[in-house]
Design a protein around this nucleic acid. Structure first.
Lengths: 215, 215
DNA sequence: TAAAAAATTTAGACAAGTCTAAATTTTAAT
DNA sequence: ATTAAAATTTAGACTTGTCTAAATTTTTTA
């Protein structure tokens, strides 16, 4: 199959492809915490294997074969996260690094049985959709709270920052998946927002409003 | 922590140490499907890290630190095997390779919670004992069926060959963990045995009798 | 649109882990 | 107690994935 490094590159390119057709060397390097030179090398290898389309200086995109591998890794990652939270009682801010390792367990039979064991969950603990065993899933982009108008209400449905520190902040203020919130006010000066949750009234910064997603 | 290769070496040395104080380069090479030269290199590295005791040409043994790592990997392997069989309904001959990958997932918190989730099982699907979270477990050697006298009866408690082909053979003849068997006869010519199980009477070869363990 | 800045690639080096072939040490056999 | 055989180690090479520094290409800016 593919090496761990290759899988991580494919996954990164997939995630970065959400916003653009083609992904730059520097973007990949930043996400993988590596250097642009290393990325150039790897893109050449992945292009040889026909997993990415790559033209020097022009960025990269996934081929159908590369995309299939990326989606399968994302499926594994999200199912393991669900397992860790729902079966082993970890908190949503604790599971990312573990799932990062577990997503590379190769057996697809294993992951399909895990999926069945858990009753075919459709979203992981962070609200991200879980691809089915054929790699199909609706990946429609959610809007950030920052786009909500004053007096409008909405339901928290995802996050675009998965870091423990952000998730812990949300947890602390009960801003978790499924909660309904109402925007009370937007402070023009810094674009921070006052929101009313089911539990209390909170003042959130622009950063938070940008990384908290709603339907 | 340690690399995947290092962990596999430590595990191999642990398993081979069952019969002897010190383990030879060739024994390790055979078990890991690698060459003696590679083993020499790695033993040097592991000795530098004080995980094995190693003197050139004299074989290797684990230090307490090395043994601790080896036992922790074995704990992970056996708990994942139990999970795969008991929760995901795999058969006992299907789980070895998957567990071989899963044993390298690093988090000990994860494995302790998995242990709890499954109710602290004491033996894996092949009858091997599962170390507790402190690394303690009774690892007393089981006797092969080959040592049982005619007319004596005993309970199948383990296997010393974990290969799918052997496990499938046992499954087919219902020679599984917990079954009681009675030795009817031993054929002197080839040391094969006629045994009576709860289900039927079977003629097993010396090889089978050597790899099937009883209490 | 030419120079400066930013992005990217190439060249060459390195570490981990493996291999083959040759050299060395240990063990077995006479 | 030598010699032959077996086991083990060393030397040198190769692969994967990484890095720094230098070279090249693209983009930006004036």
């Amino acid at each position: 199959m593919n090496t761990l490094a290759e899988e991580n590159y494919l996954k990164s390119i997939y995630h970065l492809s959400f916003d653009a057709e083609t992904v730059s060397t520097n973007q990949i390097a930043a996400l993988l915490n590596t250097k642009a030179a290393s990325v150039s090398d790897m893109l050449k290898k992945l292009a040889d294997k026909e997993l990415v389309n790559y033209a020097k200086y022009q960025g990269a995109s996934l081929t159908p074969a590369g995309k299939k591998i990326a989606v399968s890794i994302i499926r594994k990652h999200r199912l393991w996260e669900y397992f860790l939270v729902e079966k082993l009682n970890f908190k949503w801010d604790e599971v990312h690094d573990m799932a990062e390792e577990m997503e590379h367990i190769s057996s697809t039979e294993l992951i399909d049985r895990l999926d069945k064991f858990m009753g075919y969950p459709r979203r992981d603990p962070h609200g991200d959709p879980i691809p089915d065993s054929n790699g199909n899933f609706k990946n429609h982009k959610l809007a950030p709270v920052a786009t909500v108008k004053v007096n409008a209400s909405c339901v928290i449905s995802g996050v675009s920052d998965h870091s423990p520190i952000f998730l812990q902040y949300l947890e602390k203020h009960k801003l978790t998946i499924g909660k309904t919130i109402n925007v009370i006010d937007v402070i023009e000066y810094d674009n921070s927002m006052i929101i009313q949750t089911e539990d209390n009234k909170i003042h959130i910064s622009r950063d938070v409003a940008n990384n908290l997603l709603i339907i």
